[in-house]
Design a protein around this nucleic acid. Structure first.
Lengths: 168, 168
DNA sequence: TATTGTTATACTCTATAACTATA
DNA sequence: TATAGTTATAGAGTATAACAATA
């Protein structure tokens, strides 16, 4: 369709080829993205990957991933929630939340308490060590957030949050 | 930590409870997110999920997912690329690209041509039907992009693309 | 020795379906 | 009958490691 006039075989480009082997025929940044540029979804996906990688790295020392952090935060701010309520609020499948909570409960950060009002459901609470741990996770998450600021700029981060406020 | 004064058991909230059963103790939008609000990563993740779902829905009639679309677009704009080049450009694992291409090749949209210059590598090209199909995919993708505009506003979409331009 | 494409494994995440115990 | 939590399965997606052919 477009750009059909581009290189049509795999001969290495004129420059490069000298080095000690390993002749790449394109440098990554000389490959056109064509229609991809201009798609919000593509930019957002790449950004999201960057953000999650930084989050995972920054909270690596405490072994907390983004989804686990979101679960702990919601339970911390709303003690007593049922699993269904947490799953709906965060857009997580209830089947998946079961495993997430299994792991958090094994680490003694969260406890499931049988509800007396509705014996089918569990009331979720942070343990005392869970409260302490979450405070630390929040400090590390704030550090991660500063990395985001450094990456895209303070004002842009604010704009982004404003634009996407409807999705939380 | 915060909000420890919130409901601490699972008794249903005062309102609601009337209906014909199904007493939810919290409505989704009355559950606080606390620290999650203010995290760029959370907003971006929710937005990305929304975007991908709309993309998958809008291109559902042709059975093309976001990653497949990005692969076809890059090959269309840069015929003759090797698998490594495509994988690096899009940030996809080369092992994963193998399966993506297997599927696109079975559907006769893409062909792998043995390179004569470097017999280890394959030159990737769209087939003739692949070119035609991609044109249609691009029209549908543009429709999806209009959905994004409707969701966040034309100006905000532009701002977003400008803020995230560095991640493509 | 290093790289390309490939195969294989494992773990995360999403999407379902079905089961149990309750309601 | 419907719902909460659970178990199980299947498919994407990510992250690795290893292998054959080739450089």
């Amino acid at each position: 369709m477009t750009a059909s006039t581009a290189r049509t075989d795999t001969r290495p480009s004129p420059r490069k080829r000298a080095g000690n082997g390993a002749a790449r025929q394109h440098d990554t940044d000389e490959i056109g993205l064509d229609a991809l540029v201009g798609h919000a979804g593509y930019a957002v996906r790449r950004f999201q990957i960057w953000i999650f990688q930084d989050f995972i790295r920054t909270l690596g020392e405490v072994g907390i991933r983004p989804t686990q952090y979101s679960v702990l935060t919601v339970i911390g701010a709303n003690p007593g929630l049922s699993q269904m309520a947490v799953a709906n609020r965060l857009g997580i499948e209830r089947a998946r939340l079961v495993h997430l909570l299994d792991s958090l409960e094994q680490r003694k950060l969260v406890k499931r308490i049988k509800s007396k009002a509705d014996r089918r459901s569990h009331a979720l609470h942070l343990t005392a060590p869970g409260e302490t741990a979450l405070a630390k996770f929040k400090r590390l998450a704030a550090e991660h957030e500063r990395h985001v600021e450094e990456k895209i700029g303070k004002a842009n981060r604010q704009r982004l949050l404003r634009i996407l406020a409807g999705f939380t």
